[in-house]
């Protein structure tokens, strides 16, 4: 793609800007900020990736993955900032997701241990894990709010905190995993996934593109299950104090 062609893609930014102005949506500023940020961030990451790919140093790969985990943690923790220790709980979840998925991919020799494979795949999986963690925290929060009486009932009958929130925890884990499973059911029928489309546009054999896409969607299933379960089981104790009393008010509002 030439730079002229790339410049022409800004037409896709002008259309929402004009609509926002005409319909008084008030989104002009946010759209402009998002556009500028995406250009700067992607160009920066492009140069960094070029440097890392050329160096093929494991230290740089490690630093890139660590940066992704830190950025994803800082973003996801906003949804559960009232949960004690939420930062390390989300960070631990993302680290486990990365270790398990890359452990399988590299351990079984499914992908070569090079920056070109490790970094983009880590990015997709960590990004997905971040979204899943946010989805889980939102849902768990609503489940708890809707079931306060039942939770108190179980505590009042001598149940433990884990027994008291078991149903809400399971519901929230299920609810946050369902979008991943559902989107995989229609993949290829309704939409072609971004990574696969990118590879095909870039000239790759569609079958090779499909193989890598399958790798990603299978890994996303593990990511979804691990992220919501780990964040869930690490977070629920923060709802209670040592006297088995419910202390949570509202995670998002505190």
């Amino acid at each position: 793609m030439t730079y002229t062609s790339l410049m022409l893609t800004l037409i896709f930014v002008f259309i929402p800007l004009i609509l926002s102005k005409t319909l008084k949506l008030g989104l002009e500023k946010d759209t402009l900020i998002a556009t500028v940020r995406s250009i700067i961030q992607l160009l920066a990451v492009g140069y960094v990736l070029t440097f890392v790919f050329e160096s093929q140093s494991f230290l740089y790969i490690f630093l890139m993955v660590a940066l992704m985990i830190v950025a994803a943690t800082l973003n996801a923790r906003k949804k559960g900032k009232a949960i004690k220790g939420i930062t390390w709980k989300i960070a631990l979840t993302l680290i486990v997701v990365e270790l398990v998925t890359q452990g399988i991919l590299l351990g079984f020799g499914i992908i070569p241990a090079t920056a070109q494979y490790i970094i983009p795949i880590s990015g997709m999986l960590i990004g997905n894990s971040m979204v899943l963690s946010i989805l889980f925290l939102n849902r768990f929060d609503s489940e708890i709010e809707a079931s306060r009486e039942q939770i108190e009932l179980i505590l009042s009958l001598g149940g433990t905190p884990k027994q008291a929130v078991h149903n809400q925890l399971i519901q929230a884990i299920r609810a946050s995993m369902i979008p991943t499973i559902e989107s995989q059911k229609t993949i290829g029928l309704v939409q072609l996934p971004g990574m696969m489309s990118g590879q095909i546009i870039g000239g790759a054999d569609p079958i090779v593109a499909v193989q890598f896409q399958l790798l990603i969607i299978f890994a996303l299933l593990t990511t979804a299950a691990l992220s919501s379960s780990l964040v869930g089981f690490l977070s629920y104790p923060a709802l209670f104090n040592e006297r088995m009393q419910m202390i949570k008010q509202n995670w998002n509002k505190r």
Binding site: S156, L157, G159, T160
Partner: peptide, 9 residues
């Protein structure tokens, strides 16, 4: 707490 709550319903 669990013991107490069984004793005090």
């Amino acid at each position: 707490p669990s013991t107490l709550r069984k004793k005090v319903g």
